[in-house]
Amino acid sequence: MSHLEISNLRVRFPTDDGVVRVTNGVDLDIEEGENLGLIGESGSGKTVLGMAIVRLLPGDAKIEGTIRFNGRDLLSLNEAEMRSIRGREIVMILQNPTNSLNPVLTIGSQIEEAVRLHSELDKERAKKKVVELLEEVGIRSAARRAKEYPHQFSGGMKERAMIAMALASDPSLIIADEPTKGLDVTIKRRVVKLIKEVTKTKSMLFITHDLGSAAEICDRIAVMYAGEILEIAGTEDLLNDPLHPYTKGFLDSLPSRGLKPIPGMGPSLIDLPSGCKFHPRCDRAMKLCKREDPPMIQKENGRRVRCFQYA
């Protein structure tokens, strides 16, 4: 049994302009202790996927499929049951720590809240635990810094505080949504190193569009496009030998690999193309690609790719 097993997940949002199909039959699994990277560009549905796991999507979202966590289908739980899992066994580290932290409360008191919500520690012990957590994420003079407010923390330190908060309940699965977005190279490197360190014994879904960070942290990487997983492979395999034309295009458009753009734009999620969602931008598209949905094809090493080329 996988730690987390998502099958045929579909999330749709009805709007005045039509139905927005954000994820279109996503199958993913995370093994115990595994770090799975989920890369994709804005609008590919990766954040929605993360939010669906912790059931934090807005009420008008139509969700189908199953999300099994330790064998239990999260989508069938009621809110009280979900609350006993969310924030305890599964925690989410959101992007943009500046918006996730309360500006009028001290960093320490915000982490303390997370600590006390999930344990029976008294105030004194909880305070000690907060300092320990801050030390664990590499904040020096932690006891003093705990009394400071978010605006007194730099971007990188705020991200560290968010990680400390996520660790407060000692979760077994962490969903990190673009935790390195907007950070400088140096600071990003440090945060990545820290995340790698603190998730050694945990499972993680690492959502990002930064392939470099994903490569450093993740055991496997899944590539998402227009609400579908197009390819999933071990990190080395994916980087050295990408199979899907989109993965190839994505890698080639990195500045370090030549900055060759993929022509065209990502599709509108209201008006998705027929057949393979990538075919209008694909230089190897055949007639078949326009007509039919390509199936997920199993390859060696547990790799999977959604492309007719490999059928």
């Binding site: 560009e41 804005s42 400088d184 190279v185 569009h209 392939l211 295009g249 994505f250 458009s253 990195l254 500045p255 900055l259 060759k260 753009p261 993929i262 734009m265």
Partner: peptide
């Protein structure tokens, strides 16, 4: 996004040589 970034940077380079622009390009990405 990276693929959009690649499109835009290529565009800027093209425009720069077509219009003989002088550019100061500020970034943190080496």
């Amino acid at each position: 996004d990276v693929s959009v970034q690649a499109q835009l940077l290529n565009l800027m380079n093209g425009v720069k040589s077509d219009l003989a622009l002088t550019i100061m390009f500020i970034t943190h990405d080496l």
